[in-house]
Amino acid sequence: MRRIWNARFSPLLAGGTLRDRMVACLGALVGVLLAALTYREVSPFPTPLLAAPIGASAVLVFAVPASPLAQPWSVVGGNAISLVVGIAVIALLPQEPLAAAPAIALAILAMSLTGCLHPPGGAVALSTVLAAPALTAPDLAAFAAPILINSVLLVALGWAFHRYSGHSYPHRPVPVKWREAPPAPPAGIVMADVDQALADLGETFDVAREDLVLLLARAEAHAARRLGAPAPVAPQPLARA
């Protein structure tokens, strides 16, 4: 039964623990509550049209703060750029059903080119396309304000919150403070090795290259300690190739 449970219901995110999930729940509770209060104060609309994307952003900021998709520029830039893309698309293609697909596709392209890919940005672009035809120009400004303000507030809260959670945010490739790590020198792996391995696999992973180097270094150190061998020593310093 335990094997079936682990196979079917274990977390898919590597490294996630119950403590991490509880910390994420607390952060998201505070972040989304602040977003709701902000929306009530700055938006004239009774229905929080752009609340869903902020909820998705909160999951990334508090549950996976090491993800490149959760970094400050990804959250603020991704949501803002997707908002602009949605407005531009609906101006050129006023029929919402037809505008939805190009809005999301162009939002992905714009976020990728500007280095701020953020999954909730797709929801921002879609929400903008669906809501914009019913709004006047002044309404559109009031519609856009909550997503921009809440994106900034969410990043600020994430920065303050993770000062106490033990995780770095904005993320830096360093071990989590409250987890014990073996005092070993870095592994003999450089960025060029990681880049070549990623090219061999042909996949895109939601983890920074620097974190991959740190992970592999720690894995080698643990393997060396388990086997009773000296920890591997890097033949050259870890640096970008």
Rank of each mutant, 00 (worst) to 15 (best):
Arg179Leu: 09
Leu198Thr: 11
Ile149Asn: 05
Arg218Val: 03
Arg209Phe: 00
Val176Leu: 06
Ile189Thr: 14
Val42Ala: 06
Trp178Lys: 15
Cys116Lys: 02
Leu92Gly: 12
Ser168Met: 09
Pro97Glu: 10
Ala134Val: 09
His118Ile: 15
Leu238Met: 11
Pro46Asp: 10
Gly86Arg: 01
Gln71Met: 03
Leu13Tyr: 12
Pro173Glu: 02
Leu148Thr: 04
Ser127Arg: 01
Lys177Ser: 13
Leu69Pro: 11
Ser165Gln: 01
Ala192Asp: 15
Ala63Phe: 05
Ser74Lys: 01
Val89Leu: 04
Pro97Val: 12
Gly115His: 13
Thr136Val: 03
Pro97Tyr: 08
Ala105His: 13
Pro120Lys: 08
Val155Met: 01
Ala63Leu: 10
Pro53Cys: 04
Ile4Met: 09
Pro46Asn: 10
Ala100Lys: 10
Gly31Thr: 12
Arg2Pro: 05
Ser127Lys: 02
Phe45Val: 06
Phe9Glu: 04
Gln196Val: 11
Val124Thr: 07
Pro97Thr: 15
Arg226Lys: 12
Ala199Phe: 08
Ala63Gln: 06
Phe205Gln: 10
Val75Pro: 00
Asp193Leu: 06
Asp20Phe: 01
Ala187Ser: 13
Arg40Leu: 04
Ile81Thr: 07
Ala145Ile: 05
Val42Gly: 06
Thr47Lys: 08
Arg179Phe: 05
Val194Gln: 10
Ala91His: 08
Cys116Val: 15
Pro186Ile: 06
Val155Asn: 01
Arg240Gln: 10
Leu34Tyr: 10
Pro44Ile: 10
Phe143Val: 03
Ala192Glu: 13
Pro232Ala: 07
Val155Cys: 03
Ala239Lys: 14
Leu117Gln: 14
Thr136Asn: 08
Ala187Val: 03
Leu214Trp: 05
Pro182Gln: 07
Ala101Arg: 07
Ala66Leu: 11
Ala100Asp: 10
Arg19Gln: 12
Ala141Gly: 13
Pro173Tyr: 05
Val174Tyr: 07
Leu92His: 05
Arg226Glu: 13
Ala58Val: 08
Gly86Ser: 05
Asn150Tyr: 03
Thr114Gln: 01
Leu212Asn: 11
Ala24Phe: 03
Leu153Trp: 01
Leu18Cys: 12
Pro138Ile: 02
Ala223Lys: 12
Gly158Glu: 02
Glu96Trp: 12
Ala239His: 11
Trp159Glu: 02
Ala91Pro: 04
Thr204Val: 09
Glu41Tyr: 13
Asn6Met: 12
Thr136Pro: 06
Leu106Ile: 15
Asp139Leu: 06
Ser67Arg: 04
Leu238Ala: 15
Ala224Arg: 12
Pro183Val: 11
Ser112Tyr: 11
Val61Pro: 01
Val174Lys: 13
Ala88His: 03
Ala123Asp: 00
Met191Lys: 12
Glu96Cys: 09
Gln196Glu: 11
Leu33Val: 11
Glu180His: 14
Leu148His: 06
Asp20Glu: 04
Ala36Pro: 04
Met22Ile: 07
Arg21Trp: 02
Ala223Gly: 07
Leu140Phe: 05
Gly166Pro: 00
Trp73Val: 08
Leu238Glu: 13
Pro138Leu: 02
Gly188Val: 04
Ala192Ser: 14
Ala217Ile: 01
Pro72Glu: 00
Pro72Tyr: 00
Val155Glu: 00
Leu212Ile: 14
Ala28Ser: 14
Ser57Phe: 03
Ala7Pro: 13
Gly31Lys: 07
Ile189Leu: 14
Pro94Ile: 02
Val174Thr: 14
Pro235Asp: 13
Arg225Asn: 10
Ala134Tyr: 12
Tyr164Arg: 15
Ala103Met: 06
Pro11Asn: 13
Leu93Ser: 09
Ala70Phe: 04
